[in-house]
């Protein structure tokens, strides 16, 4: 498929799901009431529901999905590893632990800013650790095993911090951090996370040429004039910013960055750079769809969206592991 057509198609899909996300919620607003609430006029309640509750949620679904998709695509390209993904290699889990450690211990007061600050540090540590490991061995297996260890460790530490919190209800929030959600996010969260995520996208986009050259291995890439140290820095900081900010406001949402690049790669010429934008748009569409489903499937209590992405993603991951023995990406 031509890149322009593919991007237009995925963009339209994401837009449609963005609108669907705006239309779904426990308050049964009709279409015209929703539109009036969103744009102008309408009742006070409809305006508040649309602008303060549904719009931030839809924006975050879009932006976080985009972040997870593009991060998965850039990590796969950079590591030449089809199983790399921020969730699987433990970046999201470390970001969640960072956010939890900064917020619940009250180190930074109960300010919301503690969340992204902690999450960015956690994500940064995870990416640095994994790249150091990947540089040393380079094998798919090492990276995935290290990711499993990192995820388990940070998951356990997250639970520990929440259990130790003097607030008796903090431990109920373990599920949010391990299986993220977009429920009741506000425009504050958008302002908190969106600029950081956008910064991450920009840094990742700047690495586009390098990840193409890396299809030929590090030595050939370097001989093509790719500055390896700078590329590594771009990707480490880009992914840490994006995934850190996303996790800080929505918890750990796994597998989006794994599934989407795989589904979309065959529709491109498979150059890693050509996959970045479509993977971002596809990630946005997938997360928005999952978030709509989370509200529709269980309207009363509402499912954590991370549960749905894991239900889709984990079997897919298993299938990839089986298939990857034949190395046909």
């Amino acid at each position: 498929m031509r890149p322009l057509a593919l991007n237009a198609l995925l963009g339209l899909l994401a837009l449609a799901l963005f609108l669907a996300s705006l239309a779904v919620g426990p308050a049964e607003l009709g279409p015209s009431e929703s539109v009036r609430g969103l744009l102008a006029g309408g009742s006070e309640a409809a305006a508040v529901i649309m602008r303060e509750i549904r719009l931030p949620r839809a924006i975050l679904g879009l932006a976080i999905g985009f972040t997870l998709g593009i991060s998965g695509a850039v990590l796969q390209g950079f590591l030449r590893n089809p199983l790399a993904e921020p969730g699987i290699i433990g970046v999201s889990a470390m970001a969640a632990f960072g956010a939890v450690a900064a917020f619940y211990t009250g180190l930074a007061g109960s300010t919301l800013y503690a969340l992204p600050a902690g999450a960015l540090i956690g994500a940064l540590l995870a990416v640095l650790l994994l790249l150091a490991l990947a540089a040393r061995s380079g094998s798919t297996l090492t990276l995935i095993l290290a990711g499993v260890a990192l995820s388990s460790l940070s998951g356990a530490l997250t639970s520990l911090v929440l259990n130790l919190s003097p607030n008796p209800f903090a431990s109920y929030e373990i599920i949010f951090w391990l299986l993220g959600s977009l429920k009741d996010r506000s425009i504050e969260h958008v302002w908190l996370a969106l600029p950081l995520m956008a910064g991450g996208w920009l840094l990742i986009a700047l690495s586009a040429r390098a990840i193409d050259a890396l299809s030929l291995g590090e030595e050939a890439a370097a001989s093509l004039g790719i500055h390896m140290a700078r590329t590594r820095l771009l990707i480490v900081v880009g992914v840490a910013l994006g995934v850190g900010a996303a996790t800080a406001v929505a918890g750990t949402i796994g597998f989006v960055g794994l599934v989407v690049p795989h589904l979309i790669r065959p529709l491109t010429n498979r150059l890693p750079s050509r996959l970045l934008l479509p993977a971002g748009l596809g990630g946005a569409a997938l997360l928005l769809a999952a978030d709509v489903a989370a509200r529709v499937v269980l309207p009363a209590g509402e499912l954590n969206v991370g549960v749905l992405t894991a239900l889709i993603g984990a079997p897919f991951f298993l299938w990839l592991v089986v298939r990857s023995r034949r190395e046909v990406f």
Binding site: R80, R209, D212, A213, L214, S215, L216, G217, E219, A220, S223, L224, G225, I226, R265, N269, R270, L271, P272, V328, F329
Partner: peptide
């Protein structure tokens, strides 16, 4: 200066033309 490494790495399922075109990056 172009360098052709001894280790032959062909990442992904790039079409031959796209792969050769990577040489134009600089």
């Amino acid at each position: 200066l172009a360098y052709l490494p001894q280790t032959r790495i062909v990442g992904w399922r790039l079409a031959v033309r796209d792969l050769v075109a990577l040489g134009r990056i600089p």
